[in-house]
Amino acid sequence: MTGPPAPGAAGRRPIAALRAVRRSAWTVAIVGLLGALLAVEKLVHPTLNVFDMQSLVDGALPLCLAAMAQTAVVLSGGIDLSVGPMMSLVNVVSALLMTHATNGQAVLIALGLMAVAAAAGALTGAVIVATGVPDIIVTLATGFVWGGLALHIMPIPGGAAPAGFAALMTGELGSVPSGLVVILAALAILWEPVHRSPAGLALYAVGSNRAAAYLSGVAVGRARVTAYAMGGAFAALGGFALTASTTNGNAAAGTSYTLTSVAATVLGGVSLAGGRGGMIGPVAAALLLTLINTLLTFEGVDPNFSLVVQGAIVVLVVMVAGLVLVRRRGA
């Protein structure tokens, strides 16, 4: 899932597999680091269940989905600074609509909201394509519109979500954390069909080199709108994750996810220039960031301090990665 799928007979030669690993080395490293950290914690605290997958996934779910939203857009060469406010808006609206809903109604409401969020994302993308205004400016502006709308709808926290709906996202399905099921389902149902279609190839192509893609006859505008629509749908899922975990609505709930979604995307090995990376890396990075947070909190560090640490990790990683790149280029 890192990099666009290569059709036809991959692995025809032994080099092909090696090449695939090399091209997604960063993702492999992040997943490895996540696994190692989990293993170490199991060894150090064998009796603690604080670190079991269930609570880790519950805590990380909104960030994982936010990172997926960001990744869809970044792969197409854009950036979405409205991910956080969009999550707030979905959180607020869903909590309001679900206050007296049954579980079945809640699911229907969620599906409807997801379609609306995807449409809102598509609209953002369409505005970017039609106006030629840089992504940063447009999404910063739409972010403020969504945030303002959320605040307007719910000036103080309120609303509710039915317990069944909450359990669907944060409970357990069998012995598997349902959050993990949500992520995998989102990948399988939302991302992979697009990813494997010509539209997915176009999305990567547009992110990699827009002019070349255009000259190759790719419908550049359509590909970019698709990416933002995917982003909107994932952000809506992230909003539901917030609703499910807090069982209420809060216009400020999603605010921090703009920053952290970008952080997880970058840590997940997705090139901010677009065209390079996949979905696994950012999801792993989101889990990693959450795990580090949980560990610090458990070790008695102030939760706010772990926020600083999280920010500092991201800044340091991008700075070191940048420096390595600069040195390699200079040599």
Binding site: G3, P4, A6, P7, G8, P198, L201, A202, Y204, A205, G207, S208, N209, A211, A212, A213, L215, S216, G217, V218, G275, R276
Partner: peptide, 17 residues
């Protein structure tokens, strides 16, 4: 200017068009 997309393989570039 070359119109091949750099981050796609040659095969994917052919499929793209």
């Amino acid at each position: 200017d070359p119109s091949l997309v750099p981050d796609l393989t040659v095969r994917q570039n052919l499929r793209l068009t």
